[in-house]
């Protein structure tokens, strides 16, 4: 179970780094955080899993989207 989840993490991380669209990368980061939460839950740390699900998938996605909106180039 742990190995499968870590493999999913690896695939998602490579996707996040290699994808062109920044918004898609941010959403993939949120999915990555969700899988991290599942991994923490499997490893018997429900408190950390709750924090990861709330902060990683909720608040940090908002912050990343804010940053992407502020640093994007205007289409010519």
């Amino acid at each position: 179970m742990v190995e499968i989840l870590l493999l999913v993490h690896l695939v998602l991380a490579i996707l996040v780094l290699s994808i062109r669209s920044l918004f898609t990368a941010v959403i993939l980061m949120a999915i990555f955080s969700l899988f991290s939460a599942v991994l923490f839950f499997v490893l018997h740390a429900p408190d950390v899993a709750l924090t990861e699900a709330a902060v990683g998938a909720g608040v940090s996605t908002f912050l990343y989207i804010w940053i992407v909106k502020h640093t994007q180039k205007e289409p010519e």
């Binding site: 429900p46 408190d47 709750l50 924090t51 709330a54 902060v55 909720g58 608040v59 908002f62």
Partner: peptide, 25 residues
């Protein structure tokens, strides 16, 4: 629930507070 039952079930002040904040968000 996470805040008030933090000493019995998994959760606690920080986790419950972030859940509250994501509801408001």
């Amino acid at each position: 629930y996470l805040v008030t039952f933090g000493h019995i079930s998994p959760g606690g002040g920080f986790q419950g507070g972030v859940a509250l904040a994501s509801g408001l968000l």
